[in-house]
Amino acid sequence: MKFLRFPMLVIKDVLQNLDPIDLINLSLSSKKMSHLISLADTHRFRVDLEHFLIISINEKQYNIQLPKNVSSRVTVMITIDNAWPAREWLHIYWNKKWTELLVHILRVFKCPLTTVNSKSMPNSKLIEAIQIMSAEQCEIKQMYIHQDLQKKKSLRNIIENLNITERLIITRMGKITRTVIGGVPSQRRDAESGQPDSNFSRN
C-alpha cells in the first residue's frame, strides 16, 4: 500500500486516528512523512517538560522517559487524568539523546513547549534541556525555575538565550534568619513558604 499516493484528505484522516507515539514512530520513517505529521492537528497537543517529557491530548498523558544513556528505544507510560500507575506502556524507537528527541518532537508536531518545570527535574537534565532549547531556539510558553538551578547557571544567561514567549517564574527558597514580629505579612508568608518572588510576563 503506497500510503503517500493517497489523497491528502485520506492521509490526514489516517494520521488523525493515530496517537502521538505512533506519529513519532511514523515520523522517523522518512523525511517526507515527518513533514506530513502536522496534518494530524498536532498543534492541539500539549508538550510539558518535567520529570518526564509529557505529551497530553484530551484526558490522556504520554509520559516519555528521559534516559541517561542512549539506547535503541525510549519507554512511554500512558496515564489517564494523571492517575498512576500507568495504564499502558509503549516505546519510541529512538537511538539518540533524549534532548534530540525533544527537538524532533517539537519540530514534527510544530508546537511549542507548553511548560518547562524544573522542580521535578534533575539539574543535569534541565541544563542539557536549556542548552539544546537555546541552541535550537525552541519556543517555550511558560518556564518555572527553582533556586537550585540558579546556583549553577547564570539566570541572566537563561533569560537572554531562551525563547520564552509567555511567562517565566523564578522561585527562590527563603531562609528565615530572624522573625520580625509585626513585619509585612505577605513578605513573611513568601519567605516561609518559598512562593514565587519574581514573575516576569511577556507578550
Binding site: 500500500m1 493515530l18 511514523l26 522517523l28 522518512s30 509503549l90 524507537y93
Partner: peptide, 18 residues
C-alpha cells in the same frame, strides 16, 4: 490507522511501503 498502531518504524515502513 489500525494497521499502523503499536508498530515500530520498520514495521510501519513495510505496511505503508515507504
Amino acid at each position: 490507522a489500525r494497521m499502523l498502531r503499536g508498530k515500530n518504524t520498520q514495521e510501519m515502513i513495510k505496511v505503508i511501503t515507504l
